[in-house]
C-alpha cells in the first residue's frame, strides 16, 4: 500500500482555527525512516500547530498525514490511539505529570499498550519495567526512579520526557522546543541526547527549535516555516543569511552563522 518508502508523508496540510486564522497552509513534508528534521521559524509561524496536527492533538482542516501507509486524519477513537503509540512527543516545559514519580511518568508512555485496570494498579509487564530502567539509565537518571517528577531540575525532567517518548517504541518523535526552558549547556546536552537516541533506535524526529545555531549544529535537514507555509527545506549549509531573512525578517545574521562554525570547532 505504500506508494513511497517514506515513513511519514504530510500532504497539503492546512489548519484554520475557528477564529479564522490560517495557521498552516499547503504544508507538504516527506520524512524517510530515521531522518531527523529541525523545524525553524518565528513564533506564531505554526511550528507547534504542525507537530500537534501530526499526532492529532490538533485536528487539521485539510490535507493528509500518512504514517506507515495509513492516513491518520481519517482515524478516530481506538485506531487513533493506536496510531499515537507510534509517535512519541517531547515538550517544551517537559509536561511531566508533576505529582507522579519518575518511573510512573516513564511507564505512562506504555499507556497505549496496557489496559485500564493494569495502568490504574500500576501493574505493567516486566518487559516494560525492564525497558523503563534501561532507558532511564541510558539518559542517565536511573537513580531517580522513585523521586517525584517535580523534585527534578529542568535538564533531568527533559530526560524523563525523552524516556517517556522512547518507551512507546515510536517510529517518529515529535519534539516541541525541547531546549527552550534550559540553560545553554543543558540545552546542547539534551539536543545531543535526542539526536543520538534517534540514531540508536532508528527513529525519525521532527524538532521544533528556536535556536537556529543549535539546529544547524545537530541536524542534516532544516525546514523553515513562515506564516504557516514552508519557505525553506534543505541542508544547514543552504540556510544562509538571505534565507534567514526570508524566514525571520531583516536582522543581522552574521553572528548566528559565525557562531555555528565556532561551535563546530569547539565540538570536534
Amino acid at each position: 500500500m505504500a506508494q513511497t518508502n517514506n515513513m511519514l508523508e504530510i500532504k497539503n496540510l492546512e489548519k484554520r482555527y475557528k477564529t479564522g486564522d490560517l495557521a498552516l497552509s499547503n504544508v507538504t513534508i516527506s520524512v524517510p525512516k530515521g531522518e531527523v528534521i529541525a523545524l525553524i521559524g518565528p513564533s506564531g509561524a505554526g511550528k507547534s500547530t504542525l507537530i500537534r496536527c501530526v499526532n492529532r492533538l490538533i485536528d487539521p482542516t485539510a490535507g493528509q498525514i500518512i504514517l506507515n501507509g495509513e492516513d491518520i486524519t481519517k482515524l478516530g477513537g481506538r485506531s487513533l490511539r493506536k496510531a499515537r503509540r507510534k509517535m512519541g512527543m517531547i515538550f517544551q516545559e517537559y509536561a511531566l505529570v508533576e505529582r507522579l514519580s519518575v518511573m510512573e511518568n516513564v511507564l505512562s508512555g506504555r499507556l497505549g499498550y496496557v489496559g485500564f485496570w493494569a495502568s490504574l494498579m500500576r501493574r505493567y509487564p516486566q518487559s516494560d519495567i525492564d525497558e523503563a530502567f534501561r532507558l532511564l539509565s541510558r539518559v542517565g537518571i536511573d537513580h531517580f526512579a522513585d523521586k517525584r517528577a517535580d523534585a527534578l531540575s529542568g535538564g533531568q525532567r527533559q530526560r524523563v520526557g525523552i524516556a517517556r517518548a522512547l518507551i512507546q517504541g515510536p517510529d517518529i518523535m515529535l519534539v516541541d522546543e525541547p531546549t527552550a526552558s534550559l540553560d545553554p549547556k543543558t540545552a546542547r546536552q539534551i539536543m545531543r541526547l535526542i539526536i543520538e537516541l534517534a540514531k540508536e533506535n532508528n527513529v525519525a524526529a521532527i524538532i521544533n527549535i528556536h535556536d537556529v545555531a543549535l539546529a544547524k549544529m545537530f541536524v542534516s535537514r532544516i525546514i523553515g516555516l513562515q506564516l504557516g507555509e514552508i519557505v525553506f527545506d534543505g541542508t544547514p549549509d543552504e540556510l544562509d543569511e538571505d534565507m534567514l531573512t526570508t524566514i525571520y525578517g531583516e536582522e543581522d545574521w552574521e553572528e548566528t552563522i559565525q557562531k555555528v562554525e565556532d561551535e563546530d570547532e569547539e565540538e570536534s
Binding site: 499515537r84 515538550f91 505529570v97 517517556r164
Partner: peptide, 10 residues
Amino acid sequence: QVEAIKATGA
C-alpha cells in the same frame, strides 16, 4: 500534562 498523556495513545 493532559496533552502529554493523550499523546502516548492513552
